[in-house]
Amino acid sequence: MCHHEPQCPPAHAVDHEAACMVAFHPEQGWGLLCNGVVVFEDTGELMPDGRSVPIHKAMPAYGQAA
């Protein structure tokens, strides 16, 4: 799916989040990476095979800057 040089990491790679974003919908809170992974603003993910990845990064506490 990726046409970048060098190619972005595939969806199954540990660093798959480093792939380029090809579609971004901030009003809906999600973006599509060129490796087929859908990333959500809360850090959850939807993999190309349909598996979901739960929120996996610490979010700042209420009232604290990011």
Rank of each mutant, 00 (worst) to 15 (best):
L32P: 01
A65T: 13
A19C: 03
E41G: 14
T43L: 00
A23M: 10
F40P: 00
E5I: 10
Y62W: 11
Q28G: 07
P10Y: 01
H12D: 12
A61V: 10
A66W: 11
A58T: 14
V14R: 11
C2Y: 01
C2F: 03
A18P: 00
D15E: 11
F24E: 10
G63T: 08
C20S: 13
K57R: 15
G36R: 00
M47C: 04
L46A: 06
F40H: 15
A11C: 08
Q64A: 09
A23C: 01
M59L: 15
M21H: 02
G50H: 04
P10H: 05
Q7P: 14
H3V: 10
F40V: 03
E27D: 15
T43Y: 09
V39R: 08
C34A: 04
R51F: 04
H25I: 07
H4G: 07
G44T: 11
G31D: 04
Y62E: 11
M47K: 08
A23R: 13
A13K: 02
A11S: 14
Q28K: 14
G29A: 07
V39N: 01
G50S: 04
K57V: 12
Q64S: 12
M47Y: 05
D49G: 05
C34H: 02
P54I: 01
M47S: 03
A65M: 12
V37F: 02
G36V: 00
G29Q: 07
H4R: 12
A66P: 10
A13N: 02
H56V: 05
H3Q: 15
P60A: 14
Q28N: 10
L46M: 11
P9C: 02
W30A: 00
H56Q: 11
P9E: 03
C20Y: 00
P48K: 03
P54M: 04
V38F: 03
E5M: 10
A23D: 09
E5L: 15
H16Y: 08
H12C: 00
G50R: 03
H12V: 04
G31N: 07
E41L: 08
S52T: 13
I55K: 13
V53C: 05
M59A: 14
M21T: 15
H3I: 07
L32T: 04
G29V: 06
P60Q: 10
F24N: 12
A18S: 13
R51L: 11
P60C: 13
Q28E: 14
P60D: 09
A61E: 13
